[in-house]
Amino acid sequence: MIQSYSLTHLEELESESVYVLREVAAQFENPVMLFSGGKDSIVMFHLARKAFFPAKVPFPLLHVDTGHNFDETIAFRDALIEKTGVNLIVGSVQESIDQGKVVEEKGFNASRNGLQTTTLLDSLEKGKYDAAMGGGRRDEEKARAKERFFSHRDDFGQWDPKNQRPELWNLFNGRKQMGEHFRVFPISNWTEMDIWQYIMHEKIEIPSLYFSHKRRVFERDGVILADSDFINKRPEEVVEERIVRFRTIGDMTCTGATASDADTLEKIIEEVASSRITERGGRSDDKRSEAAMEDRKKQGYF
């Protein structure tokens, strides 16, 4: 029998991510994994379980809770924590508002999305975490295309796109001064399609929001938003029941749904393959200006 020593692209991506996760555990004293309950962080956590098997994942998860989450996301998160026995830390945006650290936006497009940055940085400081792993992917958005696996942040948590360390081969430089920390993106090289294929291949559980379901929604600037108490509707905005699903999961206030009858992973993959809109096309937070993501990243956003 002729041996073929080759990996499929999913196997190679998995191997790369596992390598990065192990580097984090080896190079940092107190790492933490950011967990949003979305598919990317679910896959990242799944990879972490693989990386340290048969030991437990050697770092806690940190969820920045805006208070505007979908109920399904929180229920899913709690069930996963219960099942895997990992330690969960919750940073609360509501607390940051109550403490007067941030001021809630007003008006129809008010969102707590931008406020998360303060809560995130506070949570990192409080836990004295020196590395925070995130599920960011380079294919998501153009400002992310240049992000490193190991992304250095100064002591204000800021990202300087002009002064990033070069990243060569698989040699990750996690050295830092006191007070500085790193953001690490283990699934940098995955695309939306890779994530879905992997979820199907590995039979990874995901929140029901990703599958098409009946929901009360309304349209704003071409984006379908879920009706909830967290959004102020304009008088002309009509709520109706539609069959939708979500391609990304964020805050209820700014995560757009798509009209879809994809209720299985196979159908979702078919839909992603034929889609002509990127997944962040439904995120109103990115539409604010052409360089919206770049600006938020500089301030310390995920």
Partner: peptide
């Protein structure tokens, strides 16, 4: 979906 998992990088 089948062919996709056969691809290399």
């Amino acid at each position: 979906t089948d062919s996709y998992t056969d691809m290399d990088l």
